[in-house]
Design a protein around this nucleic acid. Structure first.
Length: 314
DNA sequence: TTCCGACAGTGGGGTCGCAAT
DNA sequence: ATTGCGACCCCACTATCGGAA
């Protein structure tokens, strides 16, 4: 289990923290043993050698010393990490099929867990990074993850302006801990806008009120579907909003797009919700959507897709 | 007493693989 | 051939509970 960062809204840091680019890919631990060779594993412990054969090959060409490293496998597109592009390789376990996708991957290394048979997880982060930089010959798909020693609000704004996903702040003197830790903090760039509520889904299990809102925006006079928003509500909001939705029920979908959703309930498109999300997908859906509140001050017919400033806001 | 961390439970987009239709 | 579903990846968020502060 790798060390995991905790999401935070904190933006003020002193010089005991270092900052790395937040990479939008998949977490991969890599172990090399002169006898057993390279072993790539996912966050949940699954074997990934067949998925990223070029990474295995590059790690096999190292000095011959035992090592365990931690990093993120990403697919780069115009200098930005693209999770959607990487997804074409995620489920593949056959190395031939993986390479045949044509999706090139890069393995950004940012930590060292062992070297030459010695456990390095008890060393401070700066020391581990220094050892990592010397131990690995960074070539081909292998890259060292740069970090900066100062940061906070300004650095995050800079990162978001470049279209990055955000930053990871790490305690410079912390040791490597397996699992979730507050010594590593996730600072995300995010965006949000208003959407028209055109329907909802029924709740499941112990859920009250409804499952998710079906939301959209207008384009050329038609209501285009943008996806479901199923989190961000407290119990009271779920029940109160359900009552308002029931009062707006209608038989037909208000959306211009066909929606693959059995059991969808439709409403007159009169409610406007503020929704936070990380980005638009290629299919025009919201990634990582969450409900932020209703906007009673907004005319639903004026809700359109906003093409925001590059990178959004921190 | 209050706060924090960990966990369970609900919800999202997207892809692959396989079974059912 | 198409559809549905679960398993993985990436996640956000709320509610709850027990222990730390």
């Amino acid at each position: 289990m790798p060390m995991l960062a905790t999401l935070t809204s904190r933006r003020v840091f002193d010089d005991r923290w270092v900052f790395e680019r937040k990479l939008d890919g998949v977490r991969v631990l890599a172990a090399f043993d002169p006898d057993a060779g390279v072993r790539l594993t996912s966050r949940t412990g699954r074997a990934l050698n067949g998925t990223y054969p070029e990474v295995v090959a590059a790690l096999e060409q190292q000095s011959g010393l035992e090592f365990t490293v931690d990093g993120e496998v990403v697919a780069l597109e115009h200098g930005r990490t693209s999770f959607e592009l990487l997804q074409q390789r995620l489920g593949l376990s056959d190395p031939v099929a993986a390479l045949a996708t044509g999706v090139a991957v890069t393995y950004y290394l940012f930590d060292l867990l062992s070297l030459d048979g010695r456990d390095t997880t008890g060393l401070p982060l700066r020391d581990r990074k220094a050892l990592l930089r010397e131990a690995i010959d960074f070539h081909g798909p292998l890259r060292y993850t740069a970090h900066r020693n100062r940061g906070g609000q300004e650095l995050l704004e800079e990162a978001c302006g470049k279209g990055w996903e955000g930053l990871i702040a790490k305690r410079a003197d912390s040791r490597y801990a397996h699992g979730r830790s507050t010594d590593w903090l996730k600072l995300k760039c995010s965006s949000g806008q208003e959407f028209v509520v055109g329907g909802f889904t029924e709740p499941a299990g112990s859920r009250a009120g409804f499952g998710a809102l079906l939301v959209g925006h207008y384009q050329d006079g038609r209501l285009r579907y943008a996806g479901k928003v199923g989190t961000g509500y407290d119990g009271r909001t779920l029940t109160e909003l359900r009552a308002r939705l029931d009062a707006l029920r209608q038989d037909d979908s208000p959306f211009a797009d066909r929606i693959q959703e059995r059991q969808a309930r439709w409403v007159r498109p009169e409610l406007v919700a503020q929704v936070g999300f990380s980005e638009w997908t290629r299919a025009g859906r919201l990634r990582h959507p969450r409900f932020l509140g209703l906007r009673d001050d907004k005319d639903p017919s004026r809700v359109v897709r906003e093409e925001p400033v590059p990178g959004g806001t921190p």
